[in-house]
Every structure is written in structure tokens, then in C-alpha cells.
Design a binder for these strands. Structure first.
Lengths: 338, 338
DNA sequence: GCGCTTTGCCAAAGCGCTTTGCAAACGAAA
DNA sequence: TTTCGTTTGCAAAGCGCTTTGGCAAAGCGC
């Protein structure tokens, strides 16, 4: 555990000079620089991060707050965050909250303890807690795919409205007019945006929403949500399902198959996200693709820009484009079912 | 950014006393303790982590090294690691290498710079680099699901041999005798163990291995591996596929469906891992379940035990049990195909 | 009332780095 | 030769915490 003092001694210079040689903040003659480099190599010197952090008041570490990293969406997000952070010389600390506000609070403390410089906040749902919201408001932090009521914090989101519209247009174009929406309305930010936009475009196009069934954004909750409506599909009272995320859509697919409802012959299903499984489930899922790693990268770059004084953190949202991916779970409505 | 000195001043005591009140390492009278607590609350004091790290020579942070966090397996692993770390008051820094030795090296430096106390190393493949291996050998580090040739480092693994045996027995029990193995043999640690154990049990049971096709452990490489053998299945020259991981198995399923080969009527497929998608792909995948989060938890606990002096890091492996999960992708071999 | 141990608090010395004010050395300009 | 800028290097003061030795005051037995 060589220290800068030992390196200095060995190179026959002062610690100051070693520091400058390393950081380049002041000029050091080539000869000395070389001696220092040699000494460092011999000693296997690596500067202590905690000492640097303490002296500089900055850690070059950011926290990524997610509810559960084993959910594909958040894993992909983490991938983007880590890539961007790495590129700029930052490390990322993984903070999973399990949707528990208490743990969230714990993690937010990390900026107060100066363990991290800032936070990429993708907790899956906006904080209900007042205490939390207050904390968040006064912190170097960027939201991913959500925003806090009232505050004008920076947030990076996918264009959920456009996604909802695309989904509606696709189904309308196939002749569908009666849809079941799977997803909780008025709930978390992005999900409600998707539904609202879908609904608007759908009704504009002459469609009707047969029902809305909520859920927890998991496969099983998707299956659960669709179960009471199986008869609806058999009679043709509804011919399409719009699920606010792929996990739920996959649960729907599963449930329909169990019940003997054919997709896409009897009912078309469209999801949202384009997770990996969407391509490999059966039938493969028509969905709205959002570029999740990009979401992570952009939010991280935004955060770091702000930390380094290159930008402000309050203000508007950054909105990333989405795209319709047509696969096998959607098809034209059958004759007589319209 | 209140400091311990300010708290001390406000409470009318010395910084020493504040520190002791906080850590409990020496007795502090109840009255004083209360005054200190009040002062801390008023000032919103939170101790500085970098100062603590510097003074104590310990960070309470560990690094998790994985090739790609967006791969389901590693995401689940991260989940387990984070949970265990959190429970013991540690944070985890996410390090994704993208299978790049250079980046790996960078991350391993983190223990030299004392940015982390130890490493959970799940790089997906053993390091080829000699420099790397040497580094690894002299570090507070535990391997997940792999081990380094020659060294006696701690590693936590799933019982890959048992898994391979289970898969073989299941297929044998269904009457299969001719199998295609999908996965690179002699390659990364766990994968080759699975294959070797499978093959041994298989041949013991009177089966023959028609071919082995390698791959990169992704869906597309699974699809690619099976493509040249499609005819084999149509003629019944092979009636089963054992893929060393689920991703490849899912790729195989996909390719077979494209080609009109029926599963499980024409061919049975078994995977390994039991990733989330295994349940929702079509047909749902028979596979060997390994408890990946547990892998993460156990390795993290092992590492932390060692960091805190409660255990040694050299020595044998910890081996976690696996289980056969039967789903729809396997069935009895058809008459006349045997 | 005398020694002796506790008890409860403090001073000061680090931990390993960055940073700033100074000073010596060295040319170049006057 | 003097003067003035540049280089180039150093000393010392932090950054905010932990830790140890010490020292009064209080409690105890006799």
C-alpha cells in the first residue's frame, strides 16, 4: 500500500510534485516526471480513492436507484448507465429498493454522506412519501421515465404518448375497434401516459375500450388481469388487447393459450417495451420498442454534465423516440367479429 | 455539509465524543448522547463516507464484476449480491466488462486504489490473461460459477455435474438415445462441466451423442448451432437436444419452429438455468434450475465474512444444488424413432 | 478519610491526498 | 548588470473522520 509520500521519497521529490506529475495541474519537468513514473511503477503505486475523494470533495461515483435489477427493463437500463458512467470515468453503485420507501431513503442518504455525487433515479414509481419528494427535489438527480408532481426536475423519458398512439394506430389499421387495456390507469407516470395516449387515438379512430384491468407489471398480473375477460374474446366482444408492458403482455399470451383462445386469429395483442422475451415468446409479440439502454446513457450523461457544471438539472424533459415492432401477435380482425 | 466538529461545538463536547456516541466504541453518558443526537438532527449531520474510509482503511463497498448486466443470468446474480451486501451494510459497485480483459483489469485496480474492499467475480469466463490471473490470485475475491486453473481460490458454483446428470436421466427416461449437444465443450468452466457430466451419464445409459455444436451462449448462437442439424431431426437420427443454457435452448426452439420441426413430438429440448423466459417461451422449456440469486448471496456473504476476518478465502468450492424442472419441451420419444 | 478502580470526556496524531502561497533558479529583456 | 517573468519544486494547511493515551471526577471498600 504505497503512499504518495513513499513515491516522492523514492523519486527524490516532494509529494506535491508527485501529485502534480500525476494530475498535470501544474507543469513538471520531463526528467522529474520520468523519475516519478519509475518510482510509481517500482512501488506499484495506485492513489487512494478515499483520500482523493476527501481532499477533492468529489467521489466520481453515482448511484443507480432501481426497484429490482433482475427485471429485464432495469437490467438494460443499468447497462446503459454503466456504459455511460464508465466512459466518463465514473463508477456506479447499484441500489435496489424492492419498492420499499425505507430502503429508498437509505440510499438517498448516500449523497448526504457524500458516498456518491449524484443519482440516476428509476424507482419504477414516483415517491408517495412527502419526505422522499422533498429530498429528491434538493439533490443532483435525474429521473428516468417518470417525473415528480410539481417539481421541475430533469427527467429522461421515452415518448410514451407516441408509443400509445402507434399501438392504437396499428390495431385500428388492422380493423380492430374493441380493445381491452391491461395496465393500471392513473398510476405510475409512464404507464398512464401510454394508456391515455392510446385511448385518445383509439377513440378518435372510432374504437371503444371494453375494459381496463390493472396490475403489477408482472407476467402473472397480466394473466390475472385478462382471466375474467376470456369469454369476451370468445364472443368477439373484444378483439384486441393493449398491455402497457411486455411482461404483462406475455402473461396475457400465456393465459390466452391456456384457455384455447387463438392469437392472433381470435385476438391481437400488443405490448410495450420490446424486452428480449418479446421476440421469443409464442406467438412473438408485437410491441412498442423503447431504447432502454439509451435511456440509461442519456440520463447518466445528463447527470454527469450537471455534476461537472456543464449543465443545469432543473428544467424540461428529454424525450426519446419509440417505434412499433410488428410480430406475430397481431393480425387483421376476423370477418364478422368487428 | 455539517462536519463532526460543528456537531461537537453545538453539543458542547469534543469531536471525539461525538464519534464515540455515534459508533458506541466507548461509553458516553446518556445525557451527552442525547445532546449529541439533538445537535446532529438540527444540523442534518451525516458522516462523510470518504473521511471514514480514509480513517478506517475500509470502504464497505464491494465490486461485482460481470460481462453484461443486461443478460438475465447476471442480473439475477446482481440481485442476490446486492441483497446480501445491503443486509450487511455494504454497497456494491457494478462493473461490466463486455468480455474485455482491458476493462476487467481497470476494474480490478479498484481494490488497489482501495475504492472497494473486495470483489465478486463472475466474468463469465476464466481470465485468459496471465497478468489477470496473477492479480486475481492476490485479492480478496470470490469466483462465481468458475474457477481458476491451479489456484485454490474460493469459488461458489451451482452443482453443474448434478445438473448435467439430471438432464441426461430425464431424457433417457423418456426413451431418448440420440442427442445433439448445444454448447462449447472444453470451454468455460461451468458449461464444460455440464456437458461432461451429461455425456458421461448419457453414454452410461446407452445413449449416443450425435454431434456437439458450440456457441456464444446467446439465442442467436443457439439457433445457429442447430440449423445445420435440422435434417437430422426430421429423419429421427437425433430425437433430443441438450443445450447448456436456456438462452441457447430458446434459440433452438425458435429455429425448430421456423423449420417446422415439432417440439416435443419430433424432438425434445432441455436447457439449463431456468431463466424467466424459459417459462414463457413456446413450448415452455424443460430445464435445470439453478438458484442464481442464491449464488450471488452466498458468494457475497463468503466474501464479506473473509473481509471481516471471519473466514479464509482460499480453499474449496461451495456447491449449490440444482433441480430438474419439467415443462412442455420434452416428451417421450415417438414410436419408430428410437 | 484513604487509596483504588471506574466512568466519561478530551487532545492530538494520524489516514493519504490536493492545493495554494512562496521561493529558488533561470533566462531573456532592458 | 539589473530587472522581471517564467518555470519548477516545496512546505504546510486542510479535507472530516477514528483512535489512543491521558486525566479529572466520581464511586467503592475498608
Amino acid at each position: 500500500m504505497a503512499s504518495i509520500a513513499e513515491v516522492a521519497a523514492r523519486a527524490g521529490v516532494s509529494p506535491t510534485t508527485v501529485s502534480h506529475a500525476l494530475s498535470g495541474k501544474r507543469k513538471v519537468s520531463a526528467a522529474v516526471k520520468e523519475r516519478v513514473a519509475a518510482a510509481m511503477a517500482e512501488l506499484g503505486y495506485v492513489p487512494s480513492r478515499s483520500a482523493q475523494s476527501l481532499a477533492m470533495g468529489v467521489t466520481r461515483v453515482i448511484a443507480l436507484v432501481v426497484p429490482d435489477i433482475s427485471i429485464g427493463y432495469f437490467a438494460e437500463l443499468a447497462h446503459g448507465v454503466e456504459a455511460a458512467a464508465m466512459r466518463r470515468g465514473y463508477n456506479v453503485i447499484l441500489c435496489t429498493t424492492g419498492f420499499d420507501p425505507a430502503r429508498e431513503l437509505t440510499y438517498l442518504q448516500m449523497v448526504h454522506s457524500r458516498a456518491v455525487d449524484g443519482i440516476v433515479y428509476a424507482a419504477g414509481a414516483p415517491p408517495t412519501d412527502q419526505e422522499l419528494s422533498d429530498l429528491l427535489g434538493a439533490m443532483p438527480l435525474v429521473f428516468v421515465d417518470e417525473e415528480i408532481e410539481g417539481t421541475r426536475l430533469k427527467s429522461v423519458i421515452s415518448d410514451n404518448e407516441a408509443g400509445g398512439r402507434l399501438a392504437a394506430e396499428h390495431l385500428l389499421g388492422l380493423g380492430h375497434r374493441k380493445v381491452l387495456i391491461v395496465g393500471a390507469e392513473g398510476e405510475p407516470f409512464s404507464s398512464s401516459r401510454r394508456i391515455a395516449a392510446f385511448r385518445r387515438r383509439w377513440e378518435d379512430g372510432g374504437g371503444t375500450v371494453v375494459a381496463t384491468a390493472g396490475g403489477q407489471f408482472t407476467e402473472s398480473s397480466g394473466a390475472l388481469a385478462v382471466a375474467p375477460h376470456l369469454a369476451t374474446f370468445q364472443t368477439g366482444t373484444a378483439t384486441a388487447v393493449f398491455a402497457v408492458n411486455d411482461l404483462m403482455a406475455i402473461g396475457v399470451l400465456h393465459e390466452l393459450r391456456q384457455a384455447g383462445v387463438r392469437v392472433p386469429e381470435d385476438v391481437s395483442v400488443v405490448g410495450f417495451d420490446d424486452v428480449m422475451a418479446a421476440k421469443y415468446c409464442f406467438p412473438s409479440l408485437t410491441t412498442i420498442r423503447q431504447d432502454v439502454p439509451a435511456l440509461g446513457q442519456v440520463s447518466t450523461d445528463t447527470l454527469i454534465d450537471a455534476l461537472e457544471g456543464a449543465a443545469e438539472l432543473d428544467g424540461d424533459q428529454l424525450r426519446l423516440p419509440v417505434a412499433l415492432v410488428v410480430r406475430d401477435s397481431t393480425g387483421p380482425v376476423q370477418a364478422g367479429r368487428r
